[in-house]
Amino acid sequence: MILLKNLLYWLCVSIFTVFHFMYVAVSLLFGVKVANRACTQWALTLVWLLEHIIGLKYEVKGLENIPDEPVVICCKHQSGWETLILQKFFRPIVFVAKKELFKIPFFGWGLKLAGTIGIDRKDRLGASRQLLEVGGLRKKQGFSIAIFPEGTRIKPGLRGRYKLGGARIANTLEMPIVPVALNSGEFWPKNSFMKYPGTISVVVGKPINPVGQGPEAVMQQVETWIEGQQRLIEGRGPFANKPVAAEQDERTGS
Rank of each mutant, 00 (worst) to 15 (best):
I2F: 08
L4S: 10
K5R: 15
Y9R: 01
W10L: 04
L11H: 04
I15T: 11
F19Q: 04
F19S: 08
H20W: 14
F21I: 04
L28S: 14
F30T: 07
F30V: 09
F30M: 11
V32N: 03
V32Y: 01
V34Y: 01
A35I: 03
A35F: 00
Q41G: 11
V47Q: 09
L49D: 05
L49Q: 09
Y58G: 05
V60I: 12
E69P: 08
K76D: 14
S79C: 10
G80P: 02
E82S: 12
L84Y: 10
K98A: 02
F102L: 00
K103D: 00
I104Y: 00
F106T: 03
F106L: 15
L113C: 03
I117G: 10
I119W: 12
D120S: 14
S128G: 13
R129T: 08
L131M: 09
L132C: 07
P149Y: 07
T152M: 02
T152A: 00
K155N: 00
G157H: 02
G160Q: 04
R161W: 01
A167K: 10
I169E: 01
L173P: 06
V180F: 11
V180S: 10
V180M: 09
A181R: 06
N183C: 07
W188C: 10
P189W: 04
K190Y: 12
N191Y: 13
M194N: 06
Y196S: 12
Y196M: 08
S201T: 06
V202D: 03
V204A: 04
V211R: 10
G212A: 10
T224D: 15
G228Y: 15
Q230N: 15
G237C: 13
A240N: 09
N241I: 00
N241S: 11
V244M: 05
E247C: 08
E247R: 12
E247G: 08
D249C: 10
